[in-house]
Each structure stands twice: as structure tokens, then as C-alpha cells.
Amino acid sequence: MTKLEQLLSQYAAYHLNHKNIVTHFVGIPLIVFSIICLTARAGVMFSGIEITLALILLVVTIFYYLSLDKIFGLIMLIVFAVAYPFAYMIAQWSMGAWLGASIGIFVLGWVIQFIGHFYEKKKPAFMDDLVGLAIGPLFVLAEMVFMLGFRKDLEQRMLEQARKQRALMDSKIVHQASVH
């Protein structure tokens, strides 16, 4: 199993309910965009170009995604390249408008996420492993690619592993409940 399959399977174990996955199509992009907005305001000029904290985070994230999968990494590069100018524009607003919009988007994204986890009846993956915060956007991209009919072999392996992991998680919960 590749590192990508392992990470996606681990994340998918918390996301097997279709309603939960659908909420993630909205919630995760909102959260990611809000983080880009919040970090696009902090920057320094270097040779006439503003290097923002958002750019640094995006570059690091893209390198991480590319190390896991070239295709997904390139698609995320395109997504971030489209999102960044909008986030940068918001970062130029007045302090109150920028913070209000960025934090509002962030909170809305998390509310949508937690609604999805209500349907799933599972806590978010990041509560057990912080890597889930980085894998969430990649999971949403992978799910979209799968829905479009591509990379079905990866989807099958991911789901098979995720169901096994979910069964283990559920059996531990049942075991802990019976002990108490």
C-alpha cells in the first residue's frame, strides 16, 4: 500500500457516510480558503514581490501533496493558484472586513463539517491524528476524481482498507463500552 493509499484510507475510515462526504465538499474548501485569507495578510517584500505566509504554506503543502501523488499534487496546485488571488484580495480589505470575512468563512466551514460528522456518527479524523488536517483537502479532491470516474482502482483499495479500519474502530468502541 502506498503512503497516499494509507493516508486516504485512514481519513476515509471516518468518512464512509455519503452525506458526510458531501458536506466536506463545501466545508473543507471553505476552511482552506479562510486559512489562505488569514495568512495572506502577513508578508514581506522580496525583489518587488510580496511573499506571504499563505504562499509559503501553499508551496509546502503542494510539495507534500506532490510527494504523495503527482496527479493530485498538480490538480491541487491549480486549485491553489486559482484560490490565492481571491484570498489575497480579501487580505487587502480593512482589518475588520478581512478578519470578519476570514473568520466567518472559517466558522461556516467547520459548522458544515460537524453537520456531516453528525450523520457519520464519528468524530473528525484530525481528533485522532492531526495529519487529517492536511489530508482532508486531498481526500475531497480524490472523492471528486472518483465521482468523475477516474482512479477507480485507487478508490477501491482505499475503501476496502477504510472499511477494515472502521470495523476495528467500531469494535474497540463496543469493547470499551462492554468493559464499563
Score class of each variant (00 low, 15 high):
165 Q>V: 12
60 V>N: 00
82 V>E: 05
95 M>E: 05
177 A>Q: 13
140 V>L: 07
99 L>D: 00
92 Q>W: 08
172 K>Y: 03
116 G>D: 08
122 K>M: 13
72 F>E: 12
27 G>P: 07
83 A>C: 10
91 A>R: 01
110 W>L: 10
114 F>K: 06
104 G>E: 02
38 L>T: 06
7 L>N: 06
112 I>C: 07
178 S>G: 07
163 R>H: 12
144 M>G: 15
155 E>A: 11
177 A>I: 10
78 I>P: 04
50 E>F: 03
176 Q>V: 11
97 A>T: 11
132 G>V: 08
172 K>V: 06
150 F>K: 10
96 G>D: 00
84 Y>W: 03
35 I>K: 03
37 C>H: 00
45 M>N: 14
104 G>L: 03
68 L>R: 03
115 I>G: 03
38 L>V: 10
27 G>F: 01
37 C>Q: 07
138 L>P: 07
151 R>H: 08
18 H>P: 12
125 A>E: 04
16 L>M: 10
66 L>P: 09
30 L>K: 03
37 C>W: 00
150 F>I: 07
58 L>F: 04
17 N>G: 10
66 L>A: 04
135 I>W: 03
129 D>P: 06
160 E>T: 15
146 F>I: 05
166 R>A: 15
159 L>H: 05
178 S>K: 14
147 M>F: 13
139 F>I: 07
90 I>Y: 01
160 E>R: 05
91 A>P: 04
40 A>P: 04
31 I>Q: 01
148 L>D: 06
141 L>G: 08
85 P>S: 06
159 L>W: 03
60 V>D: 00
61 T>C: 12
73 G>N: 02
78 I>M: 12
145 V>R: 09
159 L>I: 08
72 F>A: 09
124 P>D: 08
158 M>C: 14
132 G>K: 01
59 V>L: 13
55 L>A: 08
18 H>L: 06
53 L>M: 12
39 T>I: 09
70 K>Q: 03
119 Y>L: 06
6 Q>M: 14
42 A>L: 14
118 F>I: 11
70 K>I: 13
42 A>M: 13
172 K>P: 04
171 S>L: 09
73 G>K: 02
67 S>Q: 02
101 A>W: 01
136 G>H: 04
100 G>D: 02
170 D>G: 07
35 I>C: 05
56 I>K: 05
175 H>I: 09
105 I>K: 01
